[in-house]
Design a protein around this nucleic acid. Structure first.
Ligand code: ZN
Length: 255
DNA sequence: ACTGCCGGGGA
DNA sequence: TCCCCGGCAGT
């Protein structure tokens, strides 16, 4: 009589050589580099951080536009370009307070950014990005929106939701739907899940870094079972299970 | 220092 | 696909 399913206990039932094939677990849906790159790029250029108007479009024509000073520590928001420029010039670049148009005309451009009222759609798009990234502009576009602060961390959660399956012997994705098996626990990289306001002024980690650590999906918690390496020793490597030999999750001594 | 293993890369 | 390994996290 044939037993057709060889799912979890590989060696007992499946008759093929132990080390024939293992397939690397696909753990999460890929967080694309695009996202990361976007984050990196954006973070490296504060002046355009929150510019919500497409570049081709002239900033003046948005009636609800506001302009925020990007000078470190300054939160000044003004409703006109002239105003914000003057602010930057006089408050921060006060080298030549007297003459307006002529001197260092472009310099103050680096120290303000346009902020318009953000549509919910755009807002949600922004929320996919690192939380800390749009933080500065989210703050002042809708300072009192309660849904913002609460939804920021969790909304991304559903995107990066992991499929909790890790065995090398895992059946194809069609078989496992999405029931997270109780047997497997992952450590979420950030268990306190940043409900805290996260003051952007005090931030000392780079945004890219931050984003990475918040989206570091999960890491299998280290089981206490001895694995092949420990059991057989380095010098008997050939007795290890394939996964261990390949420095993958051991498939012989499961946790 | 050692262990387990993810992610990535070479053939 | 098979195999190896850098590097990281946890012990
Ligand atoms: Zn093993």
């Amino acid at each position: 009589m044939q037993v057709s399913q060889c799912g979890e206990s590989e060696m007992s039932i499946c008759s093929r050589p132990v080390s024939s094939s293992i397939d690397v677990p696909k753990r999460r849906q890929e967080v694309d580099m695009d996202e990361l790159m976007a984050a990196m790029v954006l973070s490296s250029c504060p002046a355009v951080l929150c510019s919500t108007a497409p570049p081709s479009q002239s900033p003046q024509n948005s009636e609800h536009a506001a302009f925020r000073c990007l000078w470190p520590g300054c939160e000044k928001v003004l409703t006109s370009i002239v105003g914000i420029k003057r602010h930057v010039r006089t408050m921060h670049l006060n080298s030549c307070a007297g003459e307006y148009e002529r001197c260092s005309r472009s310099e103050e451009d680096f120290y303000y950014t346009e902020v318009t009222s953000v549509s919910p759609r755009l807002l949600s798009a922004l929320l996919i990005l690192p939380q800390s990234l749009p933080l500065t502009c989210l703050q002042l576009t809708s300072p009192s929106s309660p849904s913002l602060s609460s939804s920021a961390p969790s909304s991304s959660d559903c995107f990066w939701q992991v499929q909790a399956e890790h065995s090398y012997q895992a059946p194809p994705p069609g078989l496992i739907v999405s029931a997270p098996s109780p047997a497997c626990h992952w450590t979420t990289a950030n268990s306190t899940h940043s409900k805290q306001p996260l003051h952007h002024r005090v931030r000392s980690v780079s945004v890219g870094e931050q984003w990475l650590q918040q989206n570091t999906p999960c890491r299998r918690v280290r089981g206490e079972a001895k694995k092949c390496r420990k059991v057989y020793g380095i010098e008997h490597r050939e007795q290890w299970c394939t996964a261990c030999r390949w420095k993958k999750a051991c498939q012989r001594f499961l946790d």
